[in-house]
Nucleic acid binder design. Structure first.
Lengths: 203, 203
DNA sequence: ATAGCGTCCGACCGATCGGACGCTATATTG
DNA sequence: CAATATAGCGTCCGATCGGTCGGACGCTAT
């Protein structure tokens, strides 16, 4: 049928695979991502699809990397222009809530669900998830420390405690959106963030 | 080998199946719970095991019901002797944190992980999960309202907002325990709860 | 004593899983 | 233009999935 595509087209195929993989994984889980169904969905053969990644695990890792890029683009990047410290922290949280609210991943935050799926296992997938969460926590922690130094947060603030609570707020939001499609959940999350980071400035 | 057991023994077999099911489901997910492996683990045949439940879905539902009983015993019951309102709310949160800390489910809170696994699907499992979460939220909500009426929480407290944040704190704890085995996470959760419900009384 | 109920086994089913292999046809490279 | 590299296909594999079925066995009630 379509024996060989150019390198550019092949890259495009790979992108299509990953795009769909992230969708499916967020809805059905990283395990629910099966080669056969994915290939059928995309009009590929299993072997044609697997040729791009080698193994299912490599596909899962690639999907997580792509999801990470999407998360950066949706949450980190919109806030990156803001001044480090409290302003950027607020911008990140705003984008973070919006990212969940808009359903960037149709089945909710892929990292959260993947973590709950893989936290009892061992192997490269769990390892990557840990690294991704650790990096994210470090970023938040860094801005919190900057905000404390700038006097924008109380001097006795414990950065890791704030990170812990922010994560909780966003996970609760994800939960409420996915299980209840609760329309007021995002507003609750915003209020929680305001309470954690102080009320929004008059901008 | 063991062709027929008495009704009492059969009941015991059923309990053994559910006990193991809850363990496996918390570690591998409700989907990772496979009839064949479960039967092998317990020294049963697949058909002998499935005879108790009929279908895998029925087994999953029964496992969730059992998990619910365990949750009630571990979290609700220890606090049930305390006075309704803020005291009971604090007792519930203490027991709730302890329940996660002690690893009552070896793979973390089964309801949380099952929710993330099934929130993108439809069917009886998701429906049951929703009902279980809804019941739990109502219980918390009720004690919060009582606490407000008693003047133990500020008059402008929004019960659903507190429930939202408490859920977040406990999900964040579960997350930190399962992905990082973070030894200070429980202390963070206790601090968050204190902040939400006011500092603990001098007892 | 015996009939019947219910538990459990062993064998088997079709479907689907991840993956291996050889092939073809083209894009790229010399 | 010739040689090579490679995207994708079709086919096949062993393992495992949930589930069915007939029968073996023993407890219990008649």
């Amino acid at each position: 049928m379509s024996p060989r595509k150019s390198a550019a087209e092949a890259q495009q195929t790979r992108e299509r695979i990953l795009e769909r993989s992230v969708e499916v994984a967020s809805l059905e889980g990283l395990d629910g991502l099966t080669i056969g169904r994915l290939a059928t969905d995309l009009g590929l053969s299993k072997s044609g699809l697997l040729g791009h990644f080698g193994t299912k695990e490599a596909l899962q890792l690639a999907a997580l990397e792509r999801a990470s890029g999407m998360f950066s683009r949706e949450v980190w990047h919109p806030a990156s222009g803001t001044r480090p410290g409290l302003p950027r922290l607020r911008a990140i949280c705003t984008a973070w809530i919006s990212y969940l609210e808009r359903g960037v991943f149709p089945g909710g935050c892929l990292f959260t669900s993947a973590t709950f799926e893989y936290d009892g296992r061992t192997g490269p997938v769990r390892d990557l998830l840990r690294r991704q969460f650790t990096a994210w926590r470090h970023r938040l922690n860094s801005d919190i420390r900057t905000a404390v130094k700038a006097g924008d947060l109380p001097g006795d603030t414990e950065p890791d405690q704030v990170v812990f609570e922010l994560n909780g707020v966003l996970m609760s939001l994800n939960h409420a959106l996915q299980l209840y499609a609760d329309p007021v959940a995002a507003e609750r999350a915003r209020r929680s963030v305001s309470r954690l980071l102080g009320t929004a400035p008059p901008d």
